[in-house]
């Protein structure tokens, strides 16, 4: 025994094992097993739960390629993911900068609290609150008409912009948090050095701040893009007749027609597409980061 433990790296692993075990056990039980079950389901003709005879098939995957509508929806969902991510960058990055470099002490804590507040409320409640704000005769419409001298009609509910607004609201805190961490780590003396060498504000941003905070931007973008592409709750509730996306079709397969095999196959195709996109983007991102 003593001889085995002697090797340095192995003893490191051994002592780390009790610390790693809970996390890996949990991942195995909560992620790996259900995912494997779903992989299994996606190759079946019928759900074994249904009590009918089942066999292995590739049909669930070929359905995706034989029907144009899944492609159309997947592209629509990817575009949605891209747009939401961009809005999160435009809104979240400046906020993170102000939090990390401008505000100090109490005021920083207060603003920080406001940023993460959405995390503490239920997602469904947030979406229904937006429904009250965005509809015709809703809070936004009434408030603007009360203030403005002319009559305007704001009815954003059940539209593509409504879906974007709802999703950006849900996901912007990720961008603020990841960017805040990297921005805060930038040494102030670097900024001072840049200034003293005569760099303008824009030059500072372009050559110092953005490159140094790039890891946070990339992490935030990945954290937002992936779930948004598969989102189904926000499009369904806020999108109205334009609210059909790849995620809602998967949800239909699981909930409405109980075709889990097809739903699982569509999910894994989405997973594959997202992984390919991340893989293609990774050289660019790595260079940037």
């Amino acid at each position: 025994m003593a001889g085995q433990v002697a090797s340095g790296s192995r003893s490191g692993l051994r002592s780390a094992l009790p610390l790693l075990l809970p996390a890996y056990l949990w991942l195995t039980v909560a992620i790996f097993l259900p995912l494997s079950a779903m992989v299994f389901f996606s190759f079946m003709t019928e759900l074994p739960l249904s009590g009918k005879a089942w066999a292995f098939t590739l049909e669930n995957y070929t359905t995706f390629f034989s029907q144009g509508l899944y492609w159309t929806l997947l592209l629509a969902s990817l575009r949605l993911g891209l747009e939401v991510t961009l809005w999160c960058v435009f809104i979240g990055y400046p906020a993170a900068y102000v939090l990390a470099k401008v505000l100090k002490g109490r005021s920083r804590e207060a603003i920080f609290l406001l940023v993460i507040l959405p995390f503490w409320s239920n997602g469904l409640v947030r979406i229904f609150s937006w429904a009250m704000v965005l509809r015709e005769g809703g809070i936004l419409d009434t408030a603007l008409n009360a203030v403005l001298p002319f009559k305007i009609n704001i009815d954003l509910m059940y539209s593509y912009p409504a879906v974007i607004i709802g999703l950006v609201h849900s996901y912007v805190p990720y961008m603020v948090l990841t960017c805040y961490l990297t921005l805060q780590a930038i040494d102030d003396s670097l900024i001072e050095a840049g200034r003293s060498l005569g760099a303008s504000r824009l030059q500072m941003l372009r050559w110092v701040i953005i490159p140094l905070s790039m890891p946070g931007l990339v992490a935030g973008a990945a954290l937002i893009f992936v779930p948004v592409v598969g989102s189904f709750m926000e499009p369904r509730i806020l999108g109205g007749r334009t609210g059909t996306f790849y995620g809602t079709v998967i949800e239909d397969q699981f909930v409405a027609v109980f075709n889990w095999p097809l739903g699982a196959a569509l999910s894994f195709i989405l997973l594959a597409v997202v992984l390919v996109i991340l893989a293609l983007a990774s050289p660019v991102l790595r260079r940037a980061a």
């Binding site: 909560a30 097993l33 259900p34 598969g230 189904f232 998967i250 699981f254 889990w260 739903g263 999910s267």
Partner: peptide, 15 residues
């Protein structure tokens, strides 16, 4: 897409 898969599985186990 993790959410529907997870809920689906939870339903399955519950059943």
């Amino acid at each position: 897409m993790r959410m529907p898969k997870l809920t689906a599985f939870l339903t399955a186990t519950a059943v």
